[in-house]
Design a protein around this nucleic acid. Structure first.
Lengths: 270, 270
DNA sequence: GCGATCAGCGGCACG
DNA sequence: CGTGCCGTTGATCGC
């Protein structure tokens, strides 16, 4: 790219900047080549979008950005929202001239769906070769917090000992399975953010399963930074327990700041 | 843009295409102006990304595309996945030269978080004025299906009638509240896709709430195109019912193809 | 602002 | 493949 060429043109002919269009034939060849080479393709133009599949949608004429990635993900972006307006993963992509328009189609079976993007004009189209072998490293996931917690469950209550973590059951995975001082089994469910009623029903379900399989009294403790009011009610109705869990995201691993356990004895419930 | 300029350069100097870089100062001014004007900004370059907030992440050096939109959404895209690797909504954005690098920062409070993108080189940076007043129109959402169903509940079972014109419960909480021929209340939960155990616990919760408030026998019917095996078991254990719900996405509204109700009498349960 | 819930959820891991 | 479930879930609507 020639330095300053674009901005130069824009500053001289500000009011006409938007009339510099690309021939659709040229765009078509850029697109076809990019898709074939699995490059990152960026197309900006005036278009109309239709989707048919799991649902159906129409996006009236307007200017959008089409982003096609090397893994055949296909996304129409408007100038708002993180998420694309229309999208498809693992799309089979075609691109052809139809009269005065350039029509891109993304299709997929299983589930069967299709996106049709009809470009009336294209302002910009460019492919980028994206050498990038790196992968993101994320810290502070729920699994990581569970593992951290496993190190010392006495934060939750004295004498609580870890038995297993991430133990797969017939259905779902129990975050932590532990044993309290009285020899009861304790199912611990960890949530990285404010727990809602779904977390409670999830824990209840696991707890009952474990109780059934192991055939001995089992408690359920939900650990989260906070819990929603109605979730709290549901939890207490179900005889489950909640423990507040403050943490700070650290590097290389999360740091547990402290745990305040709500005082609620098993005997209260039974 | 001059027609053919880009592809021309690429075809002549294929092997050197990637060495055409932009001065960071120039990129900086493009970026600053785009952010100020709420244009759609697209930057491609070699960078390193750090995130700190609800979690923490590091993305090692590599070539990515940064997309900043008019609503201050900020997204780093790799050449894979629909979703950005790093992102932020409603970001406060800064952009400054730091030594040999151009550093973009996106920050936010509530929750407090920040993304730092350190560009070592920038291959491309361009802002697009995105005149686009149109909004997507989507058909086939759960709400729409509920409304469709409301028209004629006899599809589910003969004599089933909407209980009240206006449900006394908060909108959206109970999909449909109806009354069967025997005068029982019926809570109907509609799912647009294969129902899982969460749909069952949700229905159970609503059903019990309604039963408690109204003080009369209440049934719960889950309506979905399909249901998972263990969700089915849970549902039957809870004395709830399932009705298959085939539909076709149509325009302007979804068409219900038919409903096959599983024969399961209330008396069976009570 | 928080709460609740849907989403064409996407993405990942596991069986 | 389906199944389950987390996510920096995002996005929307109601309060």
């Amino acid at each position: 790219m020639r330095r300053g060429q674009q901005t130069g043109a824009n500053s001289i002919k500000k009011n006409f900047a938007s009339i510099y269009f690309m021939q659709l034939e040229q765009a078509q060849s850029i697109i076809a080549e990019a898709v074939q080479k699995k490059q990152l393709l960026c197309v900006v133009g005036n278009c109309f979008v239709e989707y048919w599949g799991r649902a159906a949608s129409k996006l009236p004429k307007g200017k959008r950005m089409l982003l096609i990635k090397g893994d055949s993900s296909f996304a129409i972006h408007q100038n708002k929202n993180l998420r694309p307006t229309n999208y498809m993963m693992n799309a089979a992509i075609s691109c052809e001239l139809q009269g005065e328009n350039l029509v891109l189609k993304a299709t997929k079976r299983k589930p069967k769906e299709s996106i049709t993007v009809t470009f009336y004009s294209i302002e910009f189209a460019k492919a980028f070769e994206m050498e990038d072998s790196a992968d993101i490293r994320l810290f502070g996931s729920e699994t990581e917090l569970s593992r951290e917690l496993m190190q010392d469950l006495s934060f939750i209550e004295p004498g609580l000992k870890p038995a297993q973590s991430e133990c797969p059951f017939r259905k779902g995975v129990v975050d932590i399975l532990a044993e309290d001082v009285e020899g009861n089994l304790v199912v611990v469910e960890v949530k990285r953010r404010k727990a809602d009623y779904k977390a409670v029903t999830q824990l209840e379900r696991y707890m009952k399963q474990v109780e059934k399989i192991k055939g001995k009294r089992t408690r359920g403790i939900l650990i989260a930074p906070d819990i929603q009011k109605n979730a709290r009610e549901l939890l207490e109705e179900s005889g489950l327990e909640f423990a507040k869990f403050d943490f700070e995201i650290g590097n290389p691993k999360a740091k547990i700041k402290g745990i305040k356990k709500k005082q609620r004895d098993l005997k209260e419930f039974f």
